[in-house]
Simulated scan of single mutants.
Amino acid sequence: MEVKDWTSVCFDEGRSTLRHWREDHVRRPEESVELWEHVLSRRPSALGDELWVVYEQVCIAALDCARLDVAAECMNALQKKFPNSHRVLKLQAMRLEAMGRYDDAVGVYDTLTARDEANPSYRKRKVAVLKAQGKRTEAIRELNDYLKKFLNDNEAWLELSNLYLGECEYAKAAHCLEELILAQPHNSLYLQRYADVKYTLGGTDNVEQAKQYFLQAAKINPNNMRALYGLFFSCQWLVQKTTGQKRKEYVALASWATDQLIDRFQMAADESSAHLDDQVKTVEQMFAALKLFSSA
């Protein structure tokens, strides 16, 4: 795809492009800075009142691509116009983050939170800073406090589950994912991740639960390969722990998962795709081994 030269566009195109990215929440930091430096900064007064949101947009873009000089230019202009603005103070904290002054940034976010406890963004930025510092335990504590006030923030529950997984706190990670499933019971990704955690915890009850959630995830999203593999391996584990009719049910379910996996590989394959052929053979061999064990 041809790369556009953003330094040579006209003023109106540059303005409308930045507005489009801003409204659609598109992050294109390098291009945004280019448009500002080479196009819009030459006639800033022509932007009218839109100048201030452009300054904010370009400041964030500049921080994203480590252009601290451009970020400082935008921030100074905003500071003069809005000397007591919380949004400008948040930008200053983000600049401290970009400079590696994490403790100073946390101090600013704490100040902002004290001034406006109803704004969740300051607390979430603080969690991001703690993660960047490797302070995982403190980030977990901060997110737990945050969720006491903002219980319905699914993004925060997902982040907390990831932090717990990083600490091998699987039961606590499972609790976070249960909250997500309650909020969005038909989200295949949440179901599959919960099943992953339950399988990792081990034990018959947990693996049985994992099997059920892998199956549910696979039915909601038939292209979720991880869920299909998870379903197969859960059944494989359970086959070794059971006998009789229950074992037959697990083998039948593993057979279904095998068929679904093979169908997905065949749909993705083309005539020269030897790699996918190997995947199909591997899945078939896995099921053949399971069937052989179950009949022993």
Score class of each variant (00 low, 15 high):
Arg67Phe: 00
Ser295Cys: 00
His275Trp: 05
Arg19Asn: 13
Val9Leu: 05
Leu147Thr: 13
Ala61Met: 05
Glu50Asn: 01
Ala114Lys: 08
Tyr146Ser: 03
Trp237Ile: 04
Asp145Phe: 09
Cys74Pro: 00
Met267Phe: 15
Leu228Phe: 06
Asn76Thr: 02
Glu30Lys: 15
Ile140Phe: 14
Val26Ser: 06
Cys74Val: 01
Gln212Ser: 07
Asp64Ser: 08
Leu18Tyr: 01
Gly48Cys: 04
Gln57His: 09
Ala274Gln: 13
Asn224Lys: 07
Phe150Met: 01
Ser8Cys: 11
Leu177Trp: 13
Glu37Ala: 12
Ala218Lys: 03
Arg115Asn: 07
Ala71Met: 01
Leu182Tyr: 12
Arg67Ser: 06
Leu51Tyr: 14
Leu182Arg: 14
Asp116Ile: 07
Tyr55Leu: 03
Lys90Gly: 10
Tyr122Phe: 12
Ala118Arg: 08
Tyr213Lys: 10
Arg264Thr: 10
Thr17Asn: 06
Glu117Met: 13
Leu130Cys: 04
His20Leu: 03
Glu30Met: 03
Gly230Tyr: 01
Cys59Tyr: 00
Leu35Tyr: 01
Ser45Arg: 08
Ala93Trp: 10
Phe287Tyr: 08
Arg125Glu: 11
Ala132Cys: 08
Ile60Asp: 04
Asn224Thr: 11
Arg125Tyr: 14
Thr113Cys: 11
Gly48Ser: 12
Arg141Pro: 02
Asp116His: 11
Arg87Pro: 03
Glu284Trp: 10
Gln240Thr: 10
Val58Gly: 10
Asn162Lys: 15
Arg125Val: 12
Thr17His: 10
Lys90Gln: 04
Glu37Leu: 13
Asp69Ser: 13
Leu151Arg: 15
Arg123Ser: 08
Glu208His: 13
Val54Arg: 01
Arg28Ala: 15
Phe150Trp: 14
Ile60Lys: 00
Leu253Arg: 07
Tyr170Lys: 14
Asn76Ser: 10
Leu112Pro: 04
Ile181Lys: 05
Glu169Trp: 05
Gly14Glu: 03
Val26Cys: 08
Ala77Asp: 01
Glu249Tyr: 05
Met286Gly: 03
Leu290Lys: 00
Asp12Asn: 11
Phe214Met: 05
